[in-house]
Amino acid sequence: MSSIVSVQNLRKSYQSGFEALKGVNLEIEEGEILALLGPNGAGKTTLISTICGITVPTSGAISVGGHDTQTGFRAARGLIGLVPQEINLEPFETVMNTVQFSRGLFGKPRDDAKIDAILKQLSLDDKKDSRIMMLSGGMKRRVLIAKALSHEPRVLFLDEPTAGVDVELRKDMWDIVAGLKAAGVTIILTTHYIEEAEAIADRIGVISKGEILLVQDKAELMAQMGKKQLQIEVSAPVDKLPKALSGYQLTAEGTTLTYTYDTKNERTGITTLLNDLQKTGLQLVDIQTQQSSLEDIFVGLVKEDT
């Protein structure tokens, strides 16, 4: 897989002196769904705005599909669709005209069949002649997505697509994202809902205070989550694991033995481990289990950063 969006050492300081991005490096692979997690004010929106051309980077370079966003802005922006966080829509226009306007801005001639298909996909086909002001909040959000998709972008940015959205619409939103991924669109979404990242992302990036703290495959993160650790305190320090215990995923550190196991397996191996432990003559003092969740990882990372 190759990068479709490449961000190199991106810095952004606003006129107020506030440094929103402090040297961000990010490679986004073609066809993936990347979720950017971060608390409010972390720089998620600034990062997206800068990639899309709404704000000008202070330093660093961004390329989209191999086109620099400054020197090749037409080619770069032509590949991008953006769904903003706020519902920004011209209230007096109809859905159809608003979406066609977006398509036109991207230099594509009016195409009613194409727009009809997009509206249908978003369950907006019966609203196409309605004025925006007549729509519900959820419908308006769909219109924003339709606008972003109107010129058939290869990369779609969704800035907090499900903030303040009810459960049903959120599920719909996830289905839409899955459908777009199937069509080959690369998707970057920001969220502060961890379960959202879990539900739809391929990779997860954590951003805090203008820095990317981690970008990792979701499966790897989930693997860490799916595993539990059993910590066994013994009375005397263990320098070397006894032979009888060599078949286990076991590490020793002082008086603590840590056993990692997968709760999804049929057998956790705890019973046999405890039996074997008893045979070695080690004296048990205490036992506890731990599970790290994405939430823990996230909170830990963000806290560490403060």
Partner: peptide
């Protein structure tokens, strides 16, 4: 567009 926020679209379009 500045007032209602739709200016984002002009700024992110290849124009």
């Amino acid at each position: 567009p500045k007032f209602i926020g739709t200016i984002y679209e002009l700024l992110s379009a290849p124009v």
